[in-house]
Nucleic acid binder design. Structure first.
Lengths: 121, 121
DNA sequence: TATTGACTTAGAGTTAACTCTAAATGATAT
DNA sequence: ATATCATTTAGAGTTAACTCTAAGTCAATA
C-alpha cells in the first residue's frame, strides 16, 4: 500500500508517516522498484497500535522504547509487559483527571443554564 | 498569598504562574508594598479552575477565550456556556479514545501474562 | 514531448507551553 | 555590614511533535 492510502487510512500526514519511520516508531518500510514506500500488512498493524496509543496521548519516546524492546526479542517480554502496565496506569490516572474536569464543567454549564433561563423570565 | 505558596498549592512553577498572568490566563495580580505578587482569593479560585482544565488537556487558547468573554460581562453568558459545552464534548471524545487505548493495552498485557506463565512451565 | 502528479530526501521551520537567564530589589539572618 | 533569600522584570532558550521547503526522480497523460 502506498503512502497516500496509508495516510488517509490512519489520518496521519505523509510527513508524519515518514517521520515515524525516521525515528524508528515503525520499521523501515520496503520500497518498490521506483523507490517508493510500499507498506506491508505488518507495517499497518504497527501503525494501528501506534496511532491508537498516540491518540490517547502516549508519548513517542515510550512507544519507541516499546518497539526497541520488541526488536530485542523474547528476553524482553517481562519488560514490555511492565512498560504497558505503566502506561495503563498513566491512562487510568488521566481518565480520572478528565472526569474531575468534566464534573466541574457540568456544574458550570448547569449554572449558566439556570442563569440564562432566569434572565428570560 | 505569595507566589511560592501558590506554586506549591497548585503544583505549578513560579515561572508558570507569572507566565499565566502575562498571557492573561489569570488577571493581573495585586502587588504588595515590596512589589511582590499577593494572590487574592479570587486569583486562587481562577487558578483552581485553570489548573483543573489544563490538567485535562484544555488548551490555553480556549481558556483565554473563556476568560476574555468573562471580562466582557453578562452579555457573553450564552457564548461562555457554548464554549464550555464544546470543551465538554472534546473531553468526552478524549475519554472514549483513551478507553479504546486501555482496551488494547489490557488485551496485550493479558497476552504477555499468558506467554510468560507458559514459558515458566 | 511537455507537463502533471505522486513520490523521494535532508534538513530547516513551526507551534504550544513552558522554562531558564541575568540583573536588580528589598527584607531577613549572622 | 554582609550574606542569603524571595522576589521582580524582559526576553531568550527548550522540548515534543510535527510540518514545511527545495530539489530531485519516475510514470502516466495531453
Amino acid at each position: 500500500m502506498r503512502i497516500k492510502e496509508v495516510s488517509q487510512r490512519f489520518g496521519l500526514s505523509q510527513d508524519t508517516l515518514r517521520y515515524y519511520e525516521k525515528i524508528g516508531l515503525i520499521d523501515y518500510v520496503t520500497r518498490d522498484s521506483q523507490g517508493n514506500r510500499d507498506y506491508q500488512e505488518s507495517d499497518l498493524q504497527r501503525l494501528e497500535f501506534v496511532c491508537c496509543m498516540r491518540d490517547a496521548g502516549v508519548s513517542i519516546q515510550v512507544l519507541r522504547e516499546y518497539i526497541e524492546l520488541n526488536h530485542l526479542g523474547d528476553e524482553t517480554m517481562e519488560a514490555r509487559k511492565n512498560l504497558l502496565i505503566q502506561e495503563r496506569k498513566k491512562l487510568l490516572d488521566k481518565q480520572a483527571i478528565i472526569q474531575a474536569s468534566l464534573d466541574k464543567l457540568e456544574y458550570k454549564i448547569e449554572n449558566y443554564e439556570k442563569c440564562l433561563s432566569t434572565k428570560k423570565i
